[in-house]
């Protein structure tokens, strides 16, 4: 058995005095599409932030391609091949679509490859070619999400992480995004997907981790998860009174 691509061991993180992760462990192999599921506040985004170096974990290690990357700066982690499509898309609204993409290619810029990559991106996302010269802020939510994914792909990541890509999108657009994610996997990408929309995510992923209160509550294949765990109970917190968040 080969070594996993990404290993997260016993990760603990906190915001001030509030502990958000109580020791998360997970693994990803090359070519896999894995989902990280859980309710609001379960620690999904915190896990991604810790992996990308935006947040410094209190304890635990992150190993990527045999190298420990815990506590490295975000820019160095990107260079090593992990790209994040952040929650809320985080498009540079003042920059044009072109400039957004150009920045995505920052860590590995080569003129010829950049041109070739653009062509590929336009095949995947024809709308971006149309909007090439427009400021990112003028794009619709779905277009911005595509731009965010395209921007991350420009870095040729070995591991692509998506934080809630369906958030705030119309059902039709959500369908598009999920089809696209599956396609990216088929094209050879390794993808870690954070989603609130568990039903949809489980439809496309190979494996999934279920987080609750900063811990991994369940891990297994998508089928296992669908069968064994009552997804709704995770989101509704077991008893009905606590429910305030309805999955999209």
């Amino acid at each position: 058995m080969t070594m996993p691509m990404l290993t997260v061991e016993n990760l603990m993180a906190s915001y001030g005095v509030v502990r958000a992760l109580h020791g998360i462990s997970l693994e990803m192999n090359e070519g896999e599409l894995v989902a990280l599921l859980g309710a609001n506040g379960a620690g999904k985004s915190t896990t991604l932030k810790s992996i990308t170096g935006v947040l410094r974990p209190v304890k635990g290690t992150v190993t990527f391609l045999g190298e420990e990357i815990t506590n490295r700066k975000p820019e160095n982690i990107v260079k090593r091949g992990i790209s994040l499509v952040p929650e809320g898309r985080e498009i540079f609204g003042q920059l044009t679509v072109e400039e957004n993409l150009r920045l995505g290619a920052f860590s590995s810029y080569q003129r010829d490859r950049y041109k070739a990559d653009l062509k590929e991106i336009f095949e995947l996302f024809p709308i971006l070619e149309e909007r090439f010269g427009q400021p990112g802020g003028l794009l619709s939510g779905g277009e911005q999400q595509m731009l965010a994914i395209a921007r991350a792909m420009m870095a040729h990541p070995k591991l692509l992480m998506l934080d809630e890509p369906s958030l705030g999108l119309s059902p039709a657009m959500t369908d598009n995004i999920f089809v696209l994610i599956k396609r990216l996997q088929e094209m050879g990408s390794t993808i870690l997907l954070v989603e609130q929309n568990a039903e949809r995510a489980l439809g496309i992923v190979d494996r999934a981790y279920l987080l609750a209160n900063g811990e991994v509550e369940f891990a297994g294949s998508a089928e296992d998860l669908k069968r064994k765990v009552d997804i709704a109970s995770v989101y509704f917190g077991g008893d009905d009174e606590a429910s305030c968040e309805v999955p999209l």
């Binding site: 935006v54 975000p74 820019e75 790209s83 952040p86 540079f92 609204g93 920045l103 860590s107």
Partner: peptide, 14 residues
């Protein structure tokens, strides 16, 4: 220009 708009995201671009 990107950093002036969203600093952390700019770092996430490498």
């Amino acid at each position: 220009r990107a950093a002036a708009e969203k600093f952390t995201t700019t770092r996430l671009m490498g």
